[in-house]
Structures are given as structure tokens and as C-alpha cells.
Design a protein around this nucleic acid. Structure first.
Length: 399
DNA sequence: TCTGGGGTCCTACCTCTT
DNA sequence: TCTGAAGAGGTAGGACCC
């Protein structure tokens, strides 16, 4: 094994489903699907037994049901997955503080400083896999490489696969050696590159580009004309195996939001207002939990035909209480046409800043909402999130 | 046969200020 | 006072990620 492979990408295998199987061992070996179980839900995680039938994550649940009617469909329990994820994070932190969580089931590690204690990248990968299995009963795949891109592709390559004969176990760990980097990278389809989604893929396909190797051979001008200068340069670098993004632990959030898709399109303005107040309350609660305030409030609406609009406004002083967030969101709502029906509504707050060291302005001290919000948080901490809420939402419940 | 919910980042365009 | 350039900040939308 050559030197300088300090980046690990660790990815739990069908995380949500595997956690459910741990809770109910009778599910083991069966097709299991975790995701939205309503009419408009999508698959969040599918067991390999379900993937044999063609079920994939992000697929509408309705389609998954047709593909695999005998699967067990579950709504999922995010609070519990978060707990398990925290446990895994603790295990990772024993090796290095340089852990960057990407999602509940995924993280990058920079083990440069841990090698004296724990060995080289591949050794640490093996150690982490067995520690996680021992302590949580869960399997994961790990990629070890010189940078994030290659480590990520490594963990992907290490995963179990669905073949013609059923589920084939994966290698568990794939080490991308410096000598074999470009060989390994260039074999991948372009979609494997960070930043190539459906739209960029279409443009690249028009140029006859199918693999990462094809991107690497493309003249810079051609690529930049097709996808834009900044994006083109970025893709070209990635296709050469160059990725200098550092592993960043503790990245502060840039926005906090809540959104909800309705079982049926909503056309009634009054009903939508009630929903927006409820979303705003949820966002404000999380802002306070993180000791954050925000300067921009954004309302997001998706029409029945999937057209999506956003409307945002700047608020001063920065806000973290339900009244202020919902007042801003409702005034944005007042300015939009609801004809055509709304299938999704969302409220988000961005341009966040910590409120711990902020001086309260005179306005805020006089408003009294700070004290009210504190009281709401205290009541919820004792009696549960549903114990108290905005009056319009609670009235709405009994309609 | 339809398309979740949590986000980040980038770009285009507009308005305001200098 | 008019006009234009340049930069900053705000807003909207799109693409992408898991």
C-alpha cells in the first residue's frame, strides 16, 4: 500500500432499514422499505432484498409497491436513527476529531494525525468497521484514498451489489491507491462526479461524454461552453482526480427550514395560512434549540404541476420566535396566487447568526415574545412538543 | 407514473448607492 | 442635474447532494 491515503469515506449499508431490522429481527432477509407511506411518499431506504425487485431510494413509494407488493413498508423513525447515528459518530471520534458528517449514515474522516496511534488509512478503516459492527450490529462500507472524491467512490465500490443471482456481498473496504487512481476514476460513469445530476448529464451526453475518462479528455473550452465556466473547471479538475476540499468538522448550519407535501393539493388560503404558521413555529423552535437567529425568511410553494416558487424577505432585527417568523411568512403568502392548488409548502430561515453573544435591541426587549418563546420551550421540554402551539394551529386541529 | 425533506451552492437579475 | 459604471445587497430560481 502506498503512502498518503489519509481520507476515509464511511457509508452505512441501507442504514434506516438495517436499524429497523435490529429492532425487529423478524424482518431480516425480507424486502423492507423505509419511506413516506402516504400517497405522495418516496423511498428513503430499501433493503438489498427489496432492491432485487428494482426498488431504489428516491423512487415514489407507489411504484415501489407495484414492483414489490410483498415488501414491508415502514414510515421510519428519524429520532431513533439520529440516536444510532450519534453512537456511530462517537466511535469515529475516538480515532480523530476530524470527522465531517454528511448525513445520518455517512461521514468523511481525515486520519492524518491518527496514524501514529492507529496505523495507516486501511488499518483504521478495518478497525472502524469492526468497532461499529460490535457496538451497533450495523455494517458499513469504507473507501480509503487521497481525497474526498476518490474515497467516496471507494466506499461505493465496497458496497454489496444486486446481481443477476441476487445479493452479492461487497468488499467492505476499497483502497484507491495512488498508482491506480486515474484508472479507477476514469472507468466510472460521469454521474459519479460530484455535481453531475440529470441536467448536467443531459448536456454532457450531447457531447458524447459517458465516462469520467471522457470528461478528462474533453478540451476545456468545449466543457466550459456546455456547462458554464465555473462548473466546467470544477468538473475538469475532478475528472483529473484533483479534489482539495478539506474534511471540515463542525460546519455551522446556513439555513433551517421545514416543508411538507400534502396528500391532496390545497387551494384554500385560510388553510394554507394555518399550515404556514405551524411550519414557522417548528422552524422557530429549532432556531432557539440551536441558539440561532436569522435575517431572511423564505416561503416555498410547489403547485400541483410541480412548478416551484420561493418568496423571501429580510427581517430586522433577526428572528427566532414563532410570531415573527410566521408574520413574515404569512405576508409573503399574501402576495402569491394559489390558483392551481398547492402540493407543498415550506418555511425556512437563513443568514443565521448565533444569538448568544448578540445584544438584544430595544424592540426585542419590549416585544415580550422572547419570554413567551422561552416559556413555550420550557413547556415543550416537560410535556412534549404537542403540549403547546400557536392558537391558529390548535384551533385548526379541531375544525 | 410520478416526483420527500433536509440542506448547500451558484447564477441571474434588480435596485440602491457612490 | 443628468448619465453611466461599478459594486453591494437582496431576491428568485435552478441544480445538486443524501
Amino acid at each position: 500500500v502506498s503512502t498518503e491515503l489519509p481520507i476515509l469515506h464511511l457509508d452505512m449499508d441501507s442504514f434506516y432499514v438495517s436499524v429497523e431490522v435490529l429492532r425487529d429481527p423478524a424482518l431480516a432477509g425480507r424486502p423492507v422499505v423505509v419511506g413516506g407511506t402516504g400517497r405522495r411518499g418516496v423511498v428513503a431506504s430499501a433493503s438489498y432484498e427489496a432492491r432485487v425487485f428494482g426498488v431504489r431510494s428516491a423512487m415514489p413509494t407507489a411504484r415501489a409497491r407495484r414492483l414489490c407488493p410483498d415488501a414491508v413498508f415502514m414510515p421510519g423513525d428519524h429520532a431513533h436513527y439520529r440516536q444510532t447515528s450519534a453512537e456511530i459518530h462517537r466511535i469515529l471520534s475516538e480515532v480523530t476529531p476530524l470527522v465531517e458528517p454528511i448525513a445520518l449514515d455517512e461521514a468523511f474522516l481525515d486520519v492524518r494525525g491518527a496514524r501514529r496511534l492507529f496505523g495507516d488509512g486501511p488499518e483504521i478503516a478495518g478497525r472502524l468497521r469492526s468497532r461499529i459492527l460490535e457496538q451497533t450490529g450495523l455494517h458499513c462500507s469504507v473507501g480509503v484514498a487521497a481525497n474526498k472524491l476518490l474515497a467516496k467512490l471507494g466506499s461505493e465500490a465496497a458496497k454489496p451489489r444486486v446481481g443477476p443471482g441476487g445479493v452479492e456481498p461487497g468488499a467492505g473496504i476499497v483502497v484507491v491507491d495512488r498508482d491506480g487512481e486515474l484508472d479507477f476514476l476514469h472507468r466510472h460513469p460521469v454521474q459519479a462526479l460530484w455535481g453531475v445530476g440529470p441536467s448536467t448529464l443531459r448536456r454532457l451526453e450531447r457531447l458524447g461524454v459517458r465516462t469520467v475518462g471522457d470528461v478528462a479528455r474533453l478540451p476545456a473550452g468545449t466543457l466550459e461552453a456546455a456547462v458554464g465556466v465555473a462548473h466546467g473547471r470544477h468538473l475538469a479538475a475532478l475528472a483529473r482526480g484533483e479534489d482539495d476540499r478539506p474534511v471540515e468538522p463542525d460546519r455551522p448550519p446556513k439555513s433551517i427550514g421545514h416543508e411538507e407535501t400534502f396528500p391532496d393539493d390545497v387551494t384554500d388560503r385560510r388553510r394554507l395560512e394555518v399550515i404556514v404558521v405551524r411550519l414557522a413555529d417548528a422552524v422557530a423552535t429549532r432556531l432557539r434549540a440551536h441558539h440561532l437567529t436569522g435575517r431572511t425568511v423564505t416561503l416555498k410553494l410547489r403547485y400541483g404541476d410541480f412548478r416551484t416558487i420561493t418568496r423571501s424577505t429580510t427581517v430586522d432585527p433577526p428572528v427566532d420566535d414563532a410570531v415573527a417568523v410566521s408574520t413574515a411568512a404569512r405576508s409573503l403568502l399574501a402576495g402569491v396566487d394559489l390558483a392551481g392548488g398547492i402540493r407543498l409548502a415550506g418555511v425556512a430561515v437563513s443568514r443565521l447568526e448565533s444569538n448568544e453573544d448578540r445584544q438584544l435591541s430595544l424592540d426585542e426587549r419590549q416585544s415580550g415574545w422572547t419570554a413567551a418563546s422561552d416559556a413555550v420551550d420550557a413547556i415543550r421540554a416537560r410535556f412534549g412538543v404537542d403540549s403547546i402551539g400557536p392558537a391558529s394551529v390548535r384551533v385548526g386541529r379541531h375544525e
